[in-house]
Design a binder for these strands. Structure first.
Lengths: 207, 207
DNA sequence: CTTTTCATGGTACAGCCGTATCAAATTGAT
DNA sequence: ATCAATTTGATACGGCTGTACCATGAAAAG
């Protein structure tokens, strides 16, 4: 048999090129030829590994979500060195803000995909909802643990707070993306909200 | 001189057609011919009133923002019949959620424009930031008034809460748009957040 | 060797897009 | 009525897009 190439690896390389060029010029502006040029391969090769553009986009979305999930997971894991549950929660939420170029690209492209999914059924069939739900579950779990440790303000509803925090984080992320405010300002808002939920200090009863 | 037509009116009609078809098929999928067909005029006419597609898009965005601003203002005004400041705030935030078709279209298109503006400088130059800032100012003002009336929880920061609420509303709106949750669930989250901010004596909360 | 099968390249094609061009109506002022 | 400004209409053009087609290079198997 002829030269064997790891298809999956090649597909990843090409999809990474897609993500790069889309992050620069916008998802709407990227064509097959742009991806080929960015990946430094021929147009035919892009067609070879992804028969159609739609499949390329789907794979790109998948890869994007995967990569970002890993990024968040890594930060959360790193934060778990800190015994404080709040640090973990904070790491999770902050990782979602478009602070550096990588997260900025993620935010931009994920939003682009989401907008497309509203009117494109092929994208809508993709697990767009699954990832946010996973984040919701993970955050809820963290909050529940904190609640078990008596760190949460009384009467807090972990799931509700998780939804609230994630919605805030997403909204703040978008506002940062469009330049309405800087990442620091967004972080501050998040921080303040965490202060409210993790009401550890002003509990004067120590018996 | 020939038949006099109100140019502004015609431009509005055509831009409305743009908004309709873009709300249905997505902004990325709409072309000049689609707009012409939707407005039931010839392609040439669309070119006549908007020399270029870019100008059409810009005008469409402008109209969209204007219309939505009026919508929100109308709801807020209507809510002001209710003496409770909270009702006004609630009206403002709820009007931004994609509950019916009109607000759904607004959310979809505004997000589409915002995403485009990140990589397109012509759109970025548009006052994308002005409108959110206006909403922020308006909401801050409302909260300050409520605070003056002693209705807010102690130590609340009106501006910070305004930013928080709007970010949440935007994030929740997106999640509703992509079908992650229903409008009722989003409203519930918002409602709960308002319960927290408006912490005074247990008012006779109607509804 | 040859053969077979995968991998790559170049290029052509049909279609759509925004825009430009060429005409023709319509209508108010002279 | 005539003229000319304004508004509408049909169509053509160049460019770009995704995809299909045909060919060739490379390397393992016979």
């Amino acid at each position: 048999m002829p030269k064997r190439v790891d298809h999956t690896q090649r597909r990843i390389e090409i999809a990474e090129a897609l993500i790069r060029v889309a992050g620069r010029r916008g998802l709407h502006a990227v064509g097959m030829r742009d991806v080929a040029a960015e990946a430094d391969v021929s147009l035919r090769l892009v067609q070879y590994y992804f028969e159609t553009k739609e499949k390329l986009l789907l794979f790109g979305l998948q890869l994007l979500a995967e990569r970002f999930g890993e990024r968040v997971a890594a930060r959360v894991t790193a934060a778990e060195a800190d015994p404080s549950p709040r640090a973990t929660v904070e790491a999770l939420l902050m990782a979602a803000l478009p602070t550096d170029e990588e997260s900025r690209t993620f935010h931009l492209l994920y939003t682009s995909y989401a907008v497309l999914a509203v009117t494109d059924q092929a994208l809508a069939a993709q697990p767009f909802v699954r990832d946010p739900d996973a984040a919701e579950d993970a955050l809820t779990k963290l909050l529940r643990q904190a609640q078990g440790a008596g760190l949460l303000s009384p009467g807090a509803n972990p799931r509700l707070e998780a939804v609230t925090l994630l919605a805030m984080s997403a909204g703040l992320g978008t506002s940062v993306l469009v330049g309405q405010r800087g990442p620091e300002a967004a972080a501050e808002v998040l921080h303040h909200q965490l202060d409210r939920i993790f009401q550890e200090s002003d509990h004067s009863s120590r018996m």
